[in-house]
């Protein structure tokens, strides 16, 4: 493109007979070359690069760890499905036929995973066994315990279990229903609080990362001020001058993301033994969950986007500010 000399033959590669395909290939080749060049630039200033990558990695580690914590706590809370079990106490004096028909209806219900009937007699036997009042119970003239239907909802979340409880309590032969979900609700609240905290901390840290990358790129722009002036004098556009700096940002992101991933993995490896000994005491089959592939790539994408954004913000302000002062 030549503004002054419209017929000028030698203005740029576009004036040459280069096929579209080849130009497309060259476009990517040039980008790869510039990306590698930026990588080389990072290598040439190792101390500054390592500091920036370190800050980025550590800043990403905290939100990533908290995310894993939330994920694992959720896994624990999911494993307490019985917590949402509903006990339906049947009215005294209901005959077995009515109980059995309700049992059949409930078994056919779409919201219910499993129904168990504990009869009066079973309950009494169990009570006698467990409580140690076995001999005292023989003095009772009749069985004071009601029939109980234990209902396990398909959806074990606190809200839907409560809804199911309300529905089942309206059954004619049901005296009342009981659902012990208070502590489950509390756990849910804590998990969601934790998730909010993760979000807030993540936003703050990511903001700091943006500033740090922006500052690093600014310093590198300042140290290349002369070079940028010369490039401007021989006709480089701002976009051309920006590109290597943007690539530096991307590289910061890639390395920072990898560092964060490695730190988290090391931490998990470190904790695995300790957690194993705790869970074995509780006879639990809890397994610490690590990053999934999707989460790994999300982390990397986030890191790269941060690097790119940080450098873009810096580049946009500082490169246009550098103007050659004279031939």
């Amino acid at each position: 493109m030549s503004i002054l000399f419209s017929g000028r033959a030698s203005s740029g590669a576009s004036a040459h007979k280069i096929s579209l395909g080849r130009r497309f290939v060259m476009f990517w080749v040039n980008h790869v070359r510039q990306a590698l060049f930026s990588l080389g630039e990072l290598w040439r200033t190792p101390s500054a690069s390592i500091l920036t990558i370190g800050v980025l990695g550590v800043s990403l580690t905290l939100p990533a760890t908290l995310h894993l914590l939330v994920k694992n706590v959720q896994q624990v809370s999911d494993s307490f499905t019985q917590a949402a079990e509903i006990s339906l106490f049947i009215k005294d004096g209901t005959d077995d036929r009515q109980i059995n028909s309700l049992l059949k209806i409930l078994q056919a219900d779409n919201d219910i995973a499993r129904v168990t009937h504990i009869s009066k007699q079973q309950a009494l036997d169990e009570f006698a066994d467990v409580s140690g009042f076995g001999s005292a119970l023989t003095y009772l003239t009749d069985n004071p315990l009601p029939d109980v239907l234990l209902v396990l909802p398909k959806n074990t979340s606190a809200g839907s279990a409560r809804q199911l409880l309300e529905r089942l309590s309206k059954e004619r032969i049901v005296e009342f229903g009981k659902l012990d979900i208070d502590w489950l609700t509390r756990l849910d609240a804590i998990v969601s609080l934790l998730r909010q905290a993760v979000l807030v901390i993540a936003v703050l840290l990511l903001g700091a990362v943006l500033l740090i990358i922006g500052n690093t790129i600014r310093l590198s722009i300042m140290s290349k001020k002369d070079e940028i002036e010369v490039m401007k004098l021989v006709g480089a556009t701002d976009a051309f001058i920006q590109r290597p700096f943007l690539y530096s940002g991307v590289w910061f992101g890639v390395f920072g993301g990898l560092l964060a991933f490695l730190i988290v993995e090391a931490m998990l490896w470190w904790l695995q033994g300790a957690i194993g000994s705790v869970t074995s005491l509780y006879d639990s089959e809890f397994r610490l969950m690590a990053f999934s592939v999707t989460e790994f790539f999300s982390l990397m994408l986030l890191a790269v986007l941060l690097g790119l954004t940080g450098s873009y913000l810096s580049v946009r302000r500082h490169i246009s500010a550098i103007e050659p002062t004279g031939p």
């Binding site: 493109m1 002054l4 000399f5 000028r8 203005s11 002369d226 010369v230 021989v234 480089a236 031939p327």
Partner: peptide
């Protein structure tokens, strides 16, 4: 920048 590409500039301190 496109105008500067049409002008060759030589500097005293060669830059």
């Amino acid at each position: 920048p496109y105008v500067r590409r049409d002008i060759g500039i030589i500097f005293q301190n060669h830059r």
